[in-house]
């Protein structure tokens, strides 16, 4: 509970900080709309030549684009800024200040930076997703919605753990920011159904860089394509990765105490 209070506090601080730069809201809105424009423009060009893309109908791909923005917004809102600051603070040694705080350090570093303008992406994603669902008609029941939310949470946790593992690497290597850039460019591939890709790329985007869990799988849940095995697999992977990343973080911390002394 106290962590929720902390998160709320970090949110408040971030909002107060950003309200000094109100024009940023319009800049961010503009940039998010441009990003959405790329996605929708690309879809428009492609679906002017075909009715289905690898078995996905236009409105289903639209739902996927909504999920892509929604999850991308969540990553940009807390995960990415937190991890970037973690890498920075390991390099500069300011992690000391976090470690002396009376709360769990992993949680603190995970939620302390909030990029509030990314809420725009989340809202846009929800609007696109909502539009897609309305156009798909009443085919989405309560069950699908529940599984969708479950897959969204599992995907979020998988991505979070994945980033934490990568960021933790900076206890050993100095320049890891670039790995985060790899993820950004890989994430773009999640704008399309993973099933389009040839096997090697599909496995890569599922197990090496878990983009599939963030976008395609929740969208599959929404359009009732999800198999029970995938559902269970996603939940299991989320649990395992969460534990692994926690363990790895502790291992890294042990090494940090050695260098900062």
């Amino acid at each position: 509970m106290s962590y929720l209070r902390l998160l709320a506090a970090f949110f408040r601080v971030s909002i107060r900080g950003e309200l000094a730069y109100r024009v940023n809201f319009f800049v961010q809105l503009f940039q998010s709309l441009l990003g959405l424009g790329i996605a929708l423009g690309g879809l428009a060009v492609i679906f002017s030549f075909t009715d289905t893309l690898g078995g996905w109908r236009p409105d289903e791909v639209l739902a996927l684009v909504g999920v892509y923005f929604l999850v991308g917004g969540m990553i940009g809102l807390v995960i990415q800024p937190g991890m970037e600051e973690l890498i920075d603070s390991i390099r500069t040694g300011t992690l000391d200040f976090t470690l002396t705080k009376p709360e769990d350090a992993q949680l603190l570093i995970s939620i302390r930076r909030v990029e509030i303008w990314k809420l725009i992406d989340i809202v846009l994603g929800l609007i696109v997703l909502g539009t897609a669902l309305v156009r798909l008609g009443g085919k989405v029941g309560g069950g699908e919605a529940a599984v969708f939310v479950l897959m969204l949470v599992a995907g979020g946790l998988i991505i979070y753990s994945f980033w934490l593992i990568l960021a933790t690497l900076s206890f050993w290597f100095v320049r890891v920011e670039n790995i985060l850039v790899i993820f950004q460019s890989m994430y773009e591939a999640g704008r399309w159904p993973i099933s389009l890709y040839p096997g090697w790329l599909r496995y890569g985007l599922t197990f090496i860089v878990p983009v599939a869990f963030a976008t395609t799988i929740p969208a599959e849940a929404m359009t009732s394509r999800l198999s029970t095995i995938t559902l269970l697999g996603a939940v299991a992977l989320a649990a395992v990765l969460l534990l692994v990343s926690r363990g790895f973080w502790r291992l890294g911390l042990r090494r940090y105490s050695g260098t900062s002394a």
């Binding site: 492609i46 030549f49 075909t50 893309l53 690898g54 850039v181 790899i182 950004q184 460019s185 890989m186 773009e188 591939a189 399309w192 389009l196 890709y197 040839p198 790329l201």
Partner: peptide, 16 residues
């Protein structure tokens, strides 16, 4: 980054 983007569009257009 420079490989992935054209690769994705290559695949999408191949499927189409």
């Amino acid at each position: 980054g420079h490989v992935l983007e054209p690769l994705v569009y290559l695949i999408v257009w191949s499927v189409v």
